[in-house]
């Protein structure tokens, strides 16, 4: 089971607890999380399922390559970290 962690900044808007999920890709792993927590989906991906522009996903510290379809492979002991890029305002 891969572990999915979310930036703590999300907690101000929506519950985003760490989850242990199955899934061979980032997309599949996140889909499992979103099915249990539907409100979280729109905060991470847009209506096309693509990663939001100012969001980042790392697998074991390496940024994913496919931000559109989230097809990067995930192993059973991997850690997926969903966080936000920094910006001002």
């Amino acid at each position: 089971m891969a572990r999915v962690r979310f930036t703590a900044n999300l907690e101000r808007h929506v519950a985003a607890p760490t989850a242990e999920v199955a899934g061979e890709t980032v997309c599949a792993a996140l889909e499992t999380v979103f099915q249990a927590n539907p409100l979280l989906r729109g905060y991470v991906v847009d209506e096309r399922g693509a990663l939001r522009k100012h969001m980042l996903i790392f697998i074991n510290g390496e940024q994913i390559a496919d931000r559109e379809k989230l097809s990067d492979k995930v192993g059973p002991t991997d850690e997926i970290f969903v966080l936000q890029a920094l910006s001002g305002g």
Binding site: H13, G42, Y43, R52, H54, M55, A85
Partner: peptide, 8 residues
Amino acid sequence: DHGHFGAK
């Protein structure tokens, strides 16, 4: 408009 997290 949450910026990073989209419009809600």
